[in-house]
Amino acid sequence: MKKQLKTIAYCRINNNTISINGKSIITKDKDLSFSDFAKQIYKEKQLAYPKFFKMDNLCKLAFLTSEFLFEAAKLDSEIIKHTGIVLSNRASSLDTDRKHQDTINDKDNYFPSPAVFVYTLANIMIGEISIRHQIKGENAFFVSEKFNETLIEHYASSLIINRKSSHILCGWVDVDNNNYDAFMYLVAEKGSYNYSKEIIKNIYTQN
């Protein structure tokens, strides 16, 4: 049993540019660090969510991408509440893992920080998105060498066919040292855009 899915909306954030459904909506100076870029976007969007500043870069990136995506998707709050979240990346939380490791390398200056340690798990980004939008749906976080649209399709379809969720937030959110890349898309049985893993791969590789 296979179901034909549709894409409701998609969002990409990389190279200090944000695009929604293939159209670039915000571009900032390429030399801006990710933290500064994220902070500017937060201020411009007037997000008023102080927890944002406690997040590590990976969560900030996932948070911002999902903000733009949900804004574009205009879903009913009942649907959002049960949305499944299936995200993936390559570096897991290594960007923050290195920071935690730095706090324990020197035995004479050994002060591991709980606020850093809590972000040494990549699935925390699913938690942050869930808290923000009160999503209590299915969760899974996968790690792969490259964005694996087939794996995500298999899992998203399984969740829909097994009636665990009707809408799935899918994507790739990776932060590793100074590199970052986020791509999220919402799939369901009804939506504005045709969906296939080939289409998703094309959108991802062409931007």
Partner: peptide
């Protein structure tokens, strides 16, 4: 089933949601 608390990133939910 695999559902999120949507409550806190480290503290367990007070309602076990």
């Amino acid at each position: 089933g695999s559902c999120n608390d949507a409550n806190h990133i480290s503290g367990p939910s007070r309602t076990g949601e």
